[in-house]
Computed example of a mutant assay.
Amino acid sequence: MDRIFTVDEARSLLPGLMEEAREVISARADLAEITADRQIRGISERGGLPELKAHEARIQDILSGWTERGIEVKGIAPVLIDFPAVLDGEDVRLCWIEGEPELGWYHRADLGFAGRRPLP
């Protein structure tokens, strides 16, 4: 059975997840810069293939850790995660996206991001 989070559980996890999200964001930016520089100039001050692989591995490690904990990863550009939950007997996802200071939104499981509403 998939993990079901309470709002309080998800909120208690968020500070650590936000710190890991900052690592994903930094690695994502480095990946983009190294890739663009290598395509345009053939080299990048940020590194080459070993650095690309290291950034990819770090991102994958973080995302795998989230999914192992029952968190649904919806995207990495921007970072978007959902926590499966039940509110008022309804299957929902508590939703956090990169840049939000706290967990304040949810949506029905069948609607996705477009159905986001503020948490009561």
Rank of each mutant, 00 (worst) to 15 (best):
E102V: 00
V24Q: 04
D91C: 00
A54S: 11
A109P: 02
A32S: 10
G99S: 02
T67H: 06
G75R: 06
E68F: 13
G65T: 10
P78G: 02
V73Y: 14
E56W: 11
G104D: 06
T35C: 03
L119I: 03
Q60N: 14
L87G: 05
E23V: 06
I34F: 02
D88A: 07
V92L: 01
G99V: 03
W105Q: 05
V92S: 02
R38Y: 00
P50A: 01
A10G: 14
R22V: 02
R69G: 14
I81V: 15
R46A: 09
V73A: 13
D30K: 14
K74G: 14
A85K: 02
L111C: 01
W96E: 06
G112Q: 04
I71R: 11
H107M: 01
L111V: 05
P84L: 04
M1K: 15
L49W: 10
R69P: 13
P50E: 04
L111R: 12
L31Y: 03
T35Q: 12
P78W: 07
A114K: 13
G75L: 11
P118D: 00
G89S: 10
E72I: 15
G16H: 15
P15E: 10
L87K: 13
I62E: 03
S64Q: 14
E33D: 15
L80R: 13
V24L: 08
G70V: 05
V7W: 00
E19F: 10
P15T: 09
T6K: 08
R38E: 08
A85G: 09
Q60S: 14
R117F: 00
L80H: 14
G99L: 01
D61R: 12
G75V: 12
G48A: 14
R11C: 08
A21P: 09
S12P: 03
W96C: 05
D110K: 04
L103C: 05
L17F: 14
E56S: 13
E100M: 11
G104M: 00
L80N: 10
S44A: 05
V92F: 01
E23S: 12
E9H: 08
G65R: 13
P78R: 03
H107P: 04
D88T: 01
G42A: 01
V24H: 13
R58G: 11
E20Y: 08
E90F: 04
L111P: 02
S12R: 14
